[in-house]
């Protein structure tokens, strides 16, 4: 009887949280799934069911395909830059924990993560400016011709990757630092006694032991990479003056289809594709890193 009462208490205690979760998480996802099978223009009362027609159209839509390719390149580009660099920087900072500058190192790397995106992106926009930007001025010292960073189809994607990585790095370093601080010291002492050098300890001990952290950081980085929008938007913003090339990304395409083209059902089918991609990639990451972690 007492057990049942406790069980009921637990259920009632968690019920408000579950209800909120259902309201803000589950129902919107279910609604997106439902809308993806309908044709709806946001304004009409009618939402005719059209089956998979939205999905069929998606895969013949050049703008969607371009957005998907760009987003994938950006997400993996950010991942490839952020994870190794964050691990390396976290190791360096951890190595210098007792330095009086340790706080400065941590803060200076974390600041980009907390800085508001729009002013940060505007600063990067100036850095990448083809005519007045310091990046071209710097490269000019080495005889490199000025590059159209924000206009060239390839370079503009690289610019978005750099901006996203710069932002993601601080958070990744912070999480890795927590991981480093929780590594068992005894293992490193034993390795040292066995003659392992610093880099060897890092390679053969730190990296394997940090796999759960790497899993978490890489999932978070990849998911946020697939959700890239504001960075691409701000780098190409400015209705006048010198707008940049609009790097098409999935979220931008969804917003355009939703609120400019009034195609909510179609935009929902894009959201479903994005959801599936992120879920599959997360699953792959979990599988790979957990399996290897156990081995």
């Amino acid at each position: 009887m007492l057990k049942r009462k406790r069980w009921l208490f637990a259920i009632f205690a968690i019920l408000p949280t579950l209800a909120i979760y259902l309201w803000v998480r589950i129902i919107p996802i279910e609604e997106v799934l439902r809308l993806s099978l309908h044709k709806w223009d946001l304004l009409s009362k009618n939402k005719p069911f059209i089956g998979f027609a939205n999905f069929e159209e998606l895969f013949h839509d050049q703008l969607f395909i371009t957005s998907l390719i760009n987003t994938t390149i950006i997400a993996f580009g950010v991942l490839v830059i952020t994870i190794p660099l964050a691990l390396f920087l976290a190791a360096l900072i951890h190595h210098r924990t007792r330095s009086r500058f340790a706080g400065f190192y941590e803060t200076s790397i974390f600041i980009p993560h907390v800085v508001s995106l729009v002013p940060a992106a505007m600063a990067w926009k100036w850095i990448f400016d083809a005519r007045l930007g310091p990046l071209n001025a710097f490269l000019g010292i080495f005889g490199v011709h000025p590059q159209s960073w924000l206009f060239d189809p390839v370079l503009s994607i690289i610019c978005v990757i750099v901006l996203c990585s710069w932002q993601a790095l601080g958070y990744a370093v912070l999480i890795y630092l927590v991981g480093f601080k929780n590594l068992p010291v005894s293992l490193f002492e034993a390795a040292k006694l066995d003659g392992a050098s610093g880099p060897q300890s890092f390679w053969f001990l730190s990296i394997p032991l940090l796999k759960p952290i790497t899993l978490y950081v890489s999932v978070v980085t990849l998911v946020s990479g697939f959700n890239v929008y504001a960075q691409a938007f701000v780098l190409a913003s400015d209705a006048q003056g010198a707008p940049g090339r609009q790097v098409r990304v999935l979220v931008l395409d969804m917003l355009e289809n939703s609120f400019r083209n009034y195609r909510i059902g179609y935009a929902s089918s894009e959201a479903v594709v994005l959801l599936v991609i992120v879920l599959v990639l997360t699953l792959i990451q979990f599988t790979l890193l957990r399996e290897r972690g156990r081995a």
């Binding site: 206009f151 209705a239 006048q240 003056g241 010198a242």
Partner: peptide, 10 residues
């Protein structure tokens, strides 16, 4: 050129 300032501001 595409890089040049454009429109009313320019």
């Amino acid at each position: 050129t595409v890089e040049m300032p454009a429109d009313a501001e320019a």
